[in-house]
Design a protein around this nucleic acid. Sequence first.
DNA 1: TTAATAAGTCTCCAAACGAGGACTTAGGAG
DNA 2: CTCCTAAGTCCTCGTTTGGAGACTTATTAA
Lengths: 196, 196
Amino acid sequence: MARTGRRPGPTSTRESIVAAAAECFATQGFDGTSMRGVAAAAGVDSALVRRFFGTKEQLFTEVATALIVPERALAAVAAGAPDAAGERLVRYFLSLLGDVSQPGPFFGLIRSAVDSEHAAALLRRLLADRVLGELATSFRSENAELGAALAASQLVGLAVARYAVRLDALTAAGTEDLIPWVAPVVQSYLTGTRIS
Amino acid sequence: MARTGRRPGPTSTRESIVAAAAECFATQGFDGTSMRGVAAAAGVDSALVRRFFGTKEQLFTEVATALIVPERALAAVAAGAPDAAGERLVRYFLSLLGDVSQPGPFFGLIRSAVDSEHAAALLRRLLADRVLGELATSFRSENAELGAALAASQLVGLAVARYAVRLDALTAAGTEDLIPWVAPVVQSYLTGTRIS
DNA sequence: TTAATAAGTCTCCAAACGAGGACTTAGGAG
DNA sequence: CTCCTAAGTCCTCGTTTGGAGACTTATTAA
């Protein structure tokens, strides 16, 4: 029987709740994740989650903003030869998603965006304003915004097809198998190059 | 107060339940859809939904198999010039998804596949065995299976980014704006053509 | 005509959920 | 030493969920 009252010593409870929440969102989506489940995963009383973060939507907001670091993505694209930006972006994205058999926290954002309007709006705002916009201005092609959005759509689709639907051909393929196919596509979207 | 007991005359209740369920799955996903909600949308008692279809998973199976007609997709790809198969496939897929402001029932399948492991497994089976497999054998390129899966991933990603996340650039773009970008990509995936 | 079955409604149940109130204990500032 | 606040737990409320049983009425085949 756990004691009541505050624990002795310094605490990292807040961080462990965020980590547990990220994992829940990744494996069960927004709807499927319960405040109680997050609390249980963090080894904490559910009322404490509420005390720290308020509603479930606020908890998701916290997790999402902690997970999305636009500077990383933009740096990954900017650093290096421009004609390999697509490949670097794909590699960065795949590394974010993690192993096929065990999708990382970042996949939870996509998953949650599909079942919660709030998550979708948050992701739309974060992605569109902070990432895709910058991406579009760094490649000054015509219709750069559309190109950046399409690049994102290919990456999101890869995530959904590989980690959620789990199409055999995609789960069997490793990063190095996917790169030669997907990288040129993303590259062409970014630069606005029409292909054959 | 509705009368109890069987209604006189012929009945189309089963069909209207399937239609209502398809709409619920499309707008709220698998988890977000409740048996009671389906019943209410069909103007029917919730116990009747259970009597007809059993569990929610069985109801989804019914809806999905009624919605996925592999022959249509394959016909759309097969009929016409081979080098325009990608374009025809993209057009067919976009027509399935319906209007941006009001996603059709087909989008519910993708949405649900992200929510529910059962929905994902069903979609994986239907897509992989019935559609992608056939698609791969009709284009006998090397790694045709992977190519077909990647084509599917681009289409699914377009659906998620446009209808769920609702990226501005994609909701603003019409079918004719998307075709010149996406069709060549899908075409290259299908034929296995490496691009520049 | 009658028995079986399909179609339909009402009511209940146990579980899980989000939310919140009341309480207890530790750390830190005065 | 003494408050005040942060950290933590317990219990409850109202709602919704998927599921299931019991009952009623129309259709249909023997």
